[in-house]
Simulated assay, not measured.
Amino acid sequence: MQRDVPTLPAAPEAVPAPASRRQQIRQGFRDSFSAGLGIFPLGIALGLLILQAGLPWWLTPALSLAAFAGSLELLLVGMMAAVTPLAAIALTVLVVNFRHVFYAFSFPLHLVRHPVGKAYAVYAMIDEAYAVNASLPEAERSGPRLLALQIACETYWVGGGLVGVALGAALPAPVEGLEFALCALFTVLTLDAFRSRREVPSVLLAGASVAVALVLTPGLAMFTALLLFVALLLARHAVTARRPAQEAAGA
């Protein structure tokens, strides 16, 4: 006759200790490396463009700190060099950066406790910081890690701009083609979005907006095209949102 051997309870699994504040900050800086590979060269292009446009060198760090929006700053250089009216500049800034309103719906500002830190997180909410933070698991996100990521991204941008200013002052002749940097950036982003989502209607609407803007307002083509494209996207959304309701009513 065999005796029943009592089974010992399984040892509890070891729960990893939460990362300290210093570890979270180091993780945030590590998170920024991939984004920095793109931010730093664009900052150099911004510094070179500002010097080649005949604008003062100090405008590079001043613009980077005041606006801190890479694509917008590259766009503003040409507008300032062409002495674009202030109203047109203000409306262009609103249209180009309006996407940040939608970022705010899912950006984890609640992780940042201090009011000053929260204000900086809002100010430094750029595309790269949003994308990198969104790729992290929910359990690994934290306020210190987010702020460290954003501070590192701004350091890459401002530092790249200063390097661009130094290179522009040292080069004997201007670098041709840098004014195409912004157009090339948006072209690459558009092609990537098209390949990943196959959004043929959006591409066609964008092309139609540009064509109409070039014909109607050649002097403010970009601004007109942006407004027209936003209006067409809203109209398309209204039409596509109405179809399921009509199909449900017909069924």
Rank of each mutant, 00 (worst) to 15 (best):
M79V: 09
M80F: 14
A81K: 11
V83C: 08
T84H: 13
P85H: 02
L86S: 11
A87G: 15
V93D: 06
N97I: 11
F98H: 08
R99S: 07
F105W: 15
P108K: 07
L109A: 01
H110L: 03
P115R: 04
V116I: 07
V116F: 08
G117V: 02
D127Y: 06
A131I: 10
A131E: 08
V132K: 06
N133T: 12
S135L: 12
P137M: 09
P137A: 12
E140K: 11
R141I: 10
P144H: 01
P144D: 00
L146K: 04
L147D: 00
L147R: 00
L147A: 01
L149I: 10
Q150V: 00
C153G: 14
E154F: 03
G159P: 01
G159F: 03
G161N: 04
V163G: 07
V163P: 05
A166R: 04
A169S: 12
A169K: 15
P174R: 14
V175D: 07
V175E: 05
E176D: 06
G177Q: 05
E179D: 15
L182Q: 08
A184I: 00
V188T: 02
L189N: 10
L191D: 08
D192W: 05
S196E: 15
R197L: 14
E199R: 10
E199K: 11
P201Y: 06
